[in-house]
């Protein structure tokens, strides 16, 4: 039995093929203008990697910002349900998932059976998102990786607001142009703290409970992960490929749907 999960995100589209033996392939491509086209490309790439062709046996579930626009699927599922399934599959002890994506962040609280108990999200402002970090990297004239590395050298952190991405940007510019300028590592530490404190308010709304899985593209940033762990007061669980967790969850839900139909 093979199933396909596709997560059409605002920046990237992810596809995961799940077989009885686990994850068969996973693909990440940049999202284009058309969600349908992005989803099709991600699917074809995954199928090609797996060496299989689309047939009636392949049950497909989509999720994410562009999920509704994908026509070749059997079901569409909410990102919260997919995150819960994906995180629980990878980390059976997880009771909370923090998804830090490109344009939005979502915190999902799981019950003892791994089902969604509650969630809190923010999608009104770029503060606390991957796009914000990218913007800050441009401003600091370094890559995201370099930023992360430098953040570990900070002895203190600059004060940067977490309530508005535009204000935060102005504050960073002000730190850079100060005489003498605020040390870069302190500015970066301030940026990470700003992002994390935004997410922490969501975590507190849902109610923090161990273990916590940190997923989404931002989870690739070690500096953010470290800051998050410091604020939470304990280590978080980060998958090897944190971007694909919701696509994986979609593939798991596809498998559940197939099993239900078969019974």
């Amino acid at each position: 039995m093979k199933t396909l999960g596709i997560d059409v995100g605002s920046l990237t589209t992810k596809a995961v093929i799940l077989s009885d033996n686990g994850i068969l392939t996973s693909t990440i491509i940049m999202s284009g203008d058309e969600a349908e086209e992005s989803a099709r490309m991600a699917m074809e790439e995954s199928l090609s990697q797996a060496g299989i062709s689309i047939n009636d046996d392949l049950y497909i579930v989509s999720t994410g910002a562009g999920a509704k626009s994908v026509s070749f699927i059997q079901q569409k599922k909410a990102i919260t349900t997919c995150l819960a399934r994906g995180a629980r599959y990878l980390f059976p002890s997880s009771r909370m998932v923090i998804d830090m994506g490109a344009e939005s962040s979502t915190v999902v609280k799981l019950n003892e059976r791994g089902r969604v108990n509650d969630w809190a999200g923010q999608d009104k402002c770029a503060a606390g998102t991957g796009i914000f970090l990218q913007q800050m990297a441009k401003l600091m004239q370094m890559s995201l990786g370099e930023m992360s590395e430098l953040s570990f050298k900070a002895k203190s952190r600059a004060s940067i607001t977490s309530t508005c991405a535009v204000f935060a940007e102005s504050e960073v510019i002000s730190h850079v142009h100060r005489d003498p300028p605020t040390p870069k590592e302190e500015i970066i530490a301030g940026i990470y703290y700003s992002v994390v404190s935004r997410i922490m308010t969501l975590c507190k709304r849902a109610g923090i409970e161990k273990d916590v899985a940190l997923v989404g593209g931002v989870a690739l940033n070690d500096g953010v992960v470290k800051t998050m762990e410091k604020e939470l007061g304990f280590a978080v669980l980060v998958p090897d490929v944190p971007q694909i967790v919701s696509a994986l969850g979609a593939a798991i839900l596809a498998r559940e749907a197939m099993e239900k139909e078969a019974s």
Partner: peptide, 14 residues
Amino acid sequence: AEKMERFFELLEDR
């Protein structure tokens, strides 16, 4: 709509 669909899915999944 998106939030309500998520919520109904949550209720269904429980």
